[in-house]
């Protein structure tokens, strides 16, 4: 894929990302951050490629290290986000307590 197409993709994704993320309320900013953090582990895709292509053993192992680091980022990020999001409950959901707040 040519550099100019990738550059266009970069710009479009930045604009769309900006739009979507601006709508997330500050209530959820910590999970948003850990969730997007997990997404930054997308670099695992590049890591897989370089680890597979590298011929020299040293480079190959370095690539494998990159895969490990990125996978920690992906799995840890998504799981911890899940753990957090499950805790957010609306007043009426928390064990039968009467809640007068709207």
């Amino acid at each position: 894929m040519s550099l100019s197409i990738l550059l266009a993709l970069f710009l479009v994704a930045s604009v769309i990302g900006h739009k979507v993320i601006s709508d997330v309320p500050s209530l959820l900013h910590t999970p948003l951050m850990s969730g997007t953090n997990a997404l930054s582990g997308v670099t695992v895709l590049g890591a897989l490629t370089v680890a597979a292509v590298a011929k020299a053993t040293g480079y190959r192992l370095l690539g494998a290290v990159a895969v490990i680091l990125a996978m920690i980022n992906v799995v840890g990020g998504f799981l911890v986000t899940h753990r957090m999001l499950k805790m957010f409950k609306k007043g009426t959901e928390s064990e039968g307590r009467e809640n007068v707040m709207g």
């Binding site: 894929m1 550099l3 197409i5 990738l6 993709l9 970069f10 710009l11 479009v12 994704a13 930045s14 604009v15 769309i16 990302g17 900006h18 979507v20 993320i21 601006s22 900013h29 948003l32 951050m33 997007t36 953090n37 997404l39 930054s40 582990g41 997308v42 670099t43 895709l45 590049g46 490629t49 370089v50």
Partner: peptide, 27 residues
């Protein structure tokens, strides 16, 4: 992540990395 996507010519990496970059910048 996005720039390393340029380096290995992977569009998925470029796009998703850019979204994360935008998110961090907003925060």
């Amino acid at each position: 992540a996005s720039i390393s996507g340029f380096a290995v010519r992977n569009p998925l990496l470029v796009a998703i990395g850019a979204i994360v970059g935008a998110s961090g910048l907003i925060l």
